[in-house]
Lab assay of single mutants.
Amino acid sequence: KLETFPLDVLVNTAAEDLPRGVDPSRKENHLSDEDFKAVFGMTRSAFANLPLWKQQNLKKEKGLF
């Protein structure tokens, strides 16, 4: 399991300012399950079932792209 970080560490943070080991294209993977659901309004599995373009739009909207 990946290390999780608080939302404010990941949202609207440039790649070079992210904690070590965080993939800038997969910031959402480093949210706790609770934060993930609070941000996206759905579970990880529901998010994973969305088309890629919709996932990317949601990530942009939430500052996690």
Rank of each mutant, 00 (worst) to 15 (best):
V11M: 13
F40D: 00
G63H: 06
M42Q: 04
D17W: 05
K1T: 13
F36I: 02
K37S: 14
K60Y: 11
P51Y: 01
L58R: 03
M42N: 00
V39D: 00
V22H: 03
F47Y: 08
P24K: 06
S45Q: 14
G21T: 08
V9C: 10
A48Y: 14
P6N: 06
G41M: 11
W53M: 09
M42I: 09
L18K: 02
L7N: 02
R44Q: 08
L64P: 02
S25R: 09
F47L: 02
Q56R: 11
D35V: 08
D17F: 07
G21R: 03
R44C: 03
A14T: 11
K37V: 15
V39S: 06
E16Y: 04
N49K: 14
L58M: 12
E61G: 07
V22E: 05
N57A: 15
K60L: 11
K1A: 13
R20V: 15
R20W: 15
G41W: 05
Q55G: 01
G21E: 11
S32E: 05
L10F: 02
V11P: 02
R20A: 15
A48W: 10
A15L: 10
D33W: 05
E3C: 13
M42Y: 06
V9F: 15
D17P: 02
L50N: 00
A46N: 11
A46F: 10
T13F: 07
N12D: 09
V39N: 02
Q55F: 00
E16H: 09
D8E: 14
P6H: 04
D17N: 07
A15T: 13
N49A: 13
P19T: 01
E16D: 13
G63Y: 04
F36A: 00
E16P: 09
S25W: 10
S32V: 04
S45F: 13
G41C: 12
E61W: 07
L10G: 03
H30F: 09
P51M: 02
L7T: 03
K54W: 12
G41D: 12
E3D: 12
A14V: 10
V22Y: 03
D33K: 05
Q56M: 12
K37R: 14
E28I: 03
K60C: 11
V22S: 03
S45A: 13
V39K: 01
N57Y: 13
V22R: 02
S32A: 07
T4W: 10
N29I: 08
F65P: 04
T13E: 05
K62D: 01
G63K: 06
F47D: 00
N57E: 11
F36Y: 02
F36P: 00
S25K: 11
F47G: 00
T13R: 07
E3L: 11
D8L: 08
N49P: 01
Q56I: 15
A15S: 13
